[in-house]
Design a protein around this nucleic acid. Structure first.
Lengths: 343, 343
DNA sequence: ACGATTGTCCAAAGCGCTTTGGCAGTGATT
DNA sequence: AATCACTGCCAAAGCGCTTTGGACAATCGT
């Protein structure tokens, strides 16, 4: 059942039926009611492609999930991020068109995504330092928002980011305040811009206290539990093991925890752990009142909400200058961090 | 730059240009080359909506992510599943249209999803026992594949499922073979069909050995680490604590592990743990050679691949009888399970 | 009483693509 | 020389919707 049939069955023109259904004023209340009733009765649903073709709006936004090329790992934070974005978008009637792309394919995927008309805008995830996709997206001339940002040219595009530098600075300060002098960093892949910033925050905090960073107790990799375990095991076996560990995700912290116990040590007493926590819904850091890990928190789901919000604003009015949002993570202290042990 | 302009700039008709680009034979090689070159030079990309409208194919499939209504939890397995599906679909040029819906909204979302033409088919996730969505999807008359299945009417629709019942039967047998007689079950939410089947497999295995299930050491909830921890703590404090625990996901097993250590016990010696492992990319169960947990394994990413494959087949030829795929999980023994301790 | 509004409705022209049906020209077959 | 089958191209009709630019009454102001 299409518009034509529906109009015919009502003895009206397509124009009138269309206007009636879309709430235009040039239709009498009586016919509007009649039309709505008929539409409902016949289960009429407008063809979104035809509508989109006619209006020029796709009512959808694109989202490209990056895959770490080699291992094809899908970062778990995407699930929550997507959930947040989808939630906000759904309220405005927008769908999400998803593509998955390895690094090499990214360019093509972006191109084909806006293969005209599929989407009205895009959300880009997990930018690398100096990511070329930004230029590409600008070039394509379609509204977009970046979750995270690229180090340079911050003001020339829309982004939403947590203040990673500040968060890790604060976390490091917390440990230094507790008297730790050998603090390890288990970071994500530092080609990722956020990981890079986190490292900077960490290093700044150290140097502000006149401490030197030791490459031996700094690692960078995909943020799995196994990685946290392996690196912690390695570091604890060093002649001068760290007394505190700063990790980039809850999973990594869990791995560190496991390693600490495997070594017969106690977390929070012998070795302190502080982590960043993306607030993933299925991986809560203890309960709200009683967290397990001291953590800088910033729920990635709300990032999804915000990005979507920004993109919608951007789609509505493209010409305004780019907007940026910076979020502060909040440090929540739990039992995993404590005073540095006296030797 | 649209087809009309491109044709005009070449001095050809739209028909010829369209055919040239789409590989139809009625075009001379010479003009085909000329057209391709011009298309590339002008950066021409056909409007997918217009094409879709003309062909009747949307070149996209819908995916509805269910949210557990209250807590709005997004199951982490979706990320990997989606990745698998996206991968397979991308190879055929299909996109994924994503919607997120709480239980109440599901019906509407499904309806509006196929709001004619948006998608050519759908993948449905996480069916509940006796899920009404199956009937709805059948009613809507569009190809669909269910990841998991609903207990009844198995043969009337397409599904892809792991043999949950068999997996948990096997896992339970493994523990019983080791001499355990008090085996706990930390299951997912049993309204979900897969969890229901797992429970059945568990109970069958017990009763086959003449053992009775004890409700005191059976739990059912959203599969978080915290849940694993809490329930294990509770059960270990019972007058007759379990000597083995069967969990429904790696995260829950990790929680159980944490609780076991918190009680001063050793996993694999004092308390055995066997889990199902969805093979999530960012949460590996140790390394391939050296798993941490004894587990029934079935990578959910490959489920995504298979579901997508099936759906594509279904879209290609709708009229054939529904197809089903049942996968067997493989039991991999690790150090987390061992002989029952002698009292 | 008249033209000027206003309220309702419609025909038809797009949106950008695919596809049907046809039309010239070429060479091979009767 | 007439027929046939190709080859290579094109005009035009959709796909199902929105939207522009009227048309036709009924109502209004003066």
């Amino acid at each position: 059942m299409n518009l034509k049939d529906l109009a015919a069955s009502l003895g009206l023109s397509q124009t009138t039926v269309s206007r009636a259904l879309n709430g235009y004023p040039e239709v009498s209340e009586a016919t509007r009611k009649r039309v709505s009733a008929a539409a409902l009765a016949h289960g009429y649903r407008p063809d979104s492609r035809a509508r989109s073709l006619a209006t020029g709006k796709a009512m959808a936004v694109g989202l490209v999930l990056p895959m770490t090329a080699k291992q094809e790992i899908v970062n778990p934070v995407f699930a929550d991020f997507v959930a947040g974005a989808a939630e906000t978008l759904a309220m405005r009637g927008y769908d999400i068109v998803l593509s998955l792309a390895s690094e090499e394919e990214q360019t093509n995927v972006y191109r084909s995504m806006l293969s005209k008309g599929r989407v009205d805008g895009m959300i880009m995830q997990a930018p690398l330092t100096g990511d070329p996709r930004i230029a590409l997206l600008k070039d394509l001339g379609m509204p977009f928002v970046v979750h995270g940002r690229v180090s340079d040219h911050d003001d020339e595009y829309c982004w939403m980011d947590m203040d990673n530098r500040h968060a890790f600075h604060e976390a490091t300060d917390h440990l230094l305040d507790l008297g730790h002098v050998r603090v390890a960093l288990l970071n994500g892949i530092e080609a990722m811009d956020f990981a890079h910033r986190r490292r900077d925050g960490f290093l700044d905090a150290l140097s502000e206290r006149g401490l030197n960073a030791d490459p031996e107790i700094m690692a960078s990799s995909t943020m799995t539990e196994q990685y946290g375990y392996n690196e912690t095991m390695r570091m604890l076996a060093l002649p001068e093991p760290p007394s505190a560990i700063l990790t980039s995700s809850l999973l990594v912290a869990m791995g560190a925890h496991r390693a600490i116990e495997a070594r017969g040590l106690r977390m929070g007493l012998d070795v302190s752990v502080v982590t960043h926590d993306d607030g993933l819904s299925y991986l809560p850091n203890g309960t709200e009142d009683a967290p397990i890990f001291t953590a800088t928190q910033s729920p990635v789901r709300s990032h999804g909400n915000i990005c979507a919000e920004m993109l919608l604003k951007r789609i509505d009015q493209d010409k305004t200058p780019p907007i940026q949002t910076k979020l502060k993570a909040s440090l929540v202290v739990g039992p995993s961090s404590g005073p540095a042990p006296t030797l």
